[in-house]
Design a protein around this nucleic acid. Structure first.
Length: 243
DNA sequence: CCCCAGGTCGTCA
DNA sequence: TGACGACATGGG
């Protein structure tokens, strides 16, 4: 509930740059979620309720490469296992950092993954995602796709590029666009929870699984407009963790 | 032993 | 385009 906090104390190890700037950027503290929330709340009572429930939510400015890999790993997977895989990946290929007598590991860069084989990834428990991770790593290393160029593209152009990466389909691409520091709010990632809440609230189809993605996307764009991505987060969080 | 998990990929109408 | 099974792994 960051929204309630008026003072935030941060204890940090060695960082490059101004720690306050870094924290402000990472937690997206420059953006006024209150104002945006007030606008979104006007859409209808459902969204209003979900916004109240999710008070304090921030969409983090996460590193683009880390977000790409993390969401490739997320495919058909569960959160505890995703966490475990990322931890093992970082411990094996990342850089150790000591802070208050504890050792942490940075998320590996694509250069740090250069010599890892498909089998190496398999042994970390990636399952069938091993090949996807390997291929995407080398597509980026070989500059087949310049992920730093994505910042200069429109949302649809950036999505088109992301879809070329192995293991990146429509859902993962939209998650990358929204949850990385690409920070595009004009996307609406659809998973089972989002499909569920959208059907419950607006579509009321007997067979929820049959509701097309296209229909949900169109509806979201019409209702929530340029901040549909934020609306998605409130609705997702509310349906997943709330009533 | 079965089912599922923050989907994607390849294949076949 | 759209539908459908396969794909590793671990927990319930």
């Amino acid at each position: 509930m960051l929204g309630k906090i008026s003072k935030l104390y941060i204890s940090s190890g060695l960082v490059e740059g101004n720690i306050k700037d870094i924290v402000y950027d990472y937690f997206d503290l420059h953006r006024d979620y209150k104002i945006i929330g007030q606008e979104l709340a006007k859409v209808d009572k459902h969204l209003k309720k979900s916004i109240e429930y999710g008070k304090g939510i921030r969409i983090l400015n996460q590193d683009l490469w880390e977000t790409i890999i993390s969401f490739i790993i997320s495919a058909n997977n569960n959160i505890p296992r995703i966490k475990g895989i990322i931890e093992r990946l970082s411990k094996k290929y990342g850089r150790p950092l000591e802070f208050e007598n504890k050792v942490y590991y940075t998320f590996p860069t694509c250069e740090e993954l250069k010599n890892a084989t498909v089998e190496d990834f398999r042994s970390l428990g990636l399952g069938f995602r091993d090949k996807r991770l390997y291929e995407t790593t080398h597509m980026v290393l070989s500059n087949q796709i310049d992920i730093n160029e994505l910042y200069n593209l429109t949302t649809n152009e950036a999505r088109e590029q992301l879809l070329k990466l192995s293991g990146v389909g429509p859902k993962v691409a939209d998650c990358i666009l929204l949850f990385s520091n690409l920070k595009r709010f004009d996307v609406f990632p659809i998973d089972v929870w989002v499909r569920r809440v959208m059907n419950d609230l607006y579509i009321h189809d007997e067979e929820e699984e049959k509701v097309s993605k296209k229909q949900i996307e169109k509806l979201a764009k019409e209702k929530f407009g340029e901040y549909e991505g934020l609306a998605q987060q409130y609705l997702f969080y509310w349906r997943r963790n709330g009533a």
